[in-house]
Simulated scan of single mutants.
Amino acid sequence: MAFWGKILGFIFGFMFFKIPGAILGLVVGHFFDKAYSQDFNQLGGFGRFFTDQNSVKQQAIFFHSLFSSLGHLAKSDGQVTSREIQIATNLMDEMRLTGEARREAQDAFREGKARDFPVVETLKGLYENCHGRRDILQVFLEILIQAAFADGQLSQEEYNVLEKVASPLGFRRRDLDYLISMFEAELRFRQRGGASNAGGGNQRQRQQRAYSDTQTLSDAYKILGVSQSDDEKVIKRAYRKRMAEHHPDKLISKGLPQQAMEIAKQKAQDIQSAYELIKEKRGF
């Protein structure tokens, strides 16, 4: 139940106009609290999915923005495929969205597919409700990048949508390209075991192993956002910065929904693995 409007209205009313002002402030505060509560109720299933009323609005907006943007991304080439629907479904499963919250996610996905869907305005609202917190907004953008790569490649149409999404979130084109490059390195880095452990002695398998040996370390540097020429101090600083951007406890404290945390955890694991490889190769 919202009550801060009545309390503040009473206090400020009494300060300026004594008892009559306190009564007037109480009445005004009551209407403010009522409107505020209605705004929460209009969040539907997403709002009811969370129990912490202090963050319910921000988290509900996060999920609505996410799944409507996914729908917009899926529609970017003119047709939503069964594969793209499955990607959204898998994300709902991974985030453990059930019941009314899942129906809200499905509705948001369908809403985002509309040709006239106001994606920029929607994401401006997300930016405001996240108070411009770059780490939260970066995780949001990284989820969309991961979804765009689910079929193994990024089409020009999908890139155009990602660029349109990135702008109202405060990311420039070069920021987007940087995040895409990092994600591509992460994809190769995660798959390195299969190529490097391939058996047999034919030329193609040897090429796979050689590619893995030469590219794995390079990708590790890309994941940290550094170059091989950087010294130990720069690499350690970059590692700490990247881990801080995806540290689960920090992200939750800043408003990232618990249900979106798996993406951040995977990123943190990649960053940790990349750093360990670099440490091993460089001996520090």
Rank of each mutant, 00 (worst) to 15 (best):
V28H: 01
G29A: 01
A147P: 02
S229V: 11
G225Y: 04
L176R: 03
F140H: 01
I235K: 05
L26Y: 03
D135C: 03
F171R: 00
K267M: 10
L91G: 14
A264Q: 00
S227N: 09
E84I: 09
R48K: 12
K241T: 14
N54E: 08
Q106L: 14
F12C: 08
S229T: 14
L26V: 02
F171W: 02
D33Y: 00
I11G: 00
R102D: 13
F12A: 07
I85L: 14
D231S: 08
A74V: 05
Q106I: 15
C130D: 03
L137E: 05
E163C: 15
A88V: 08
Q266P: 02
R102M: 14
K267H: 13
A88T: 05
L137N: 01
E245I: 09
I252N: 06
L43I: 04
L66I: 15
S227E: 05
I11N: 00
G199Y: 12
V27Y: 02
I85T: 12
F17W: 04
Q272D: 15
R209S: 03
Q138H: 06
M95H: 11
L187C: 06
A220Q: 02
G71V: 07
P248I: 07
A114N: 15
A105V: 14
S253L: 10
L73K: 04
Q269I: 15
R134E: 10
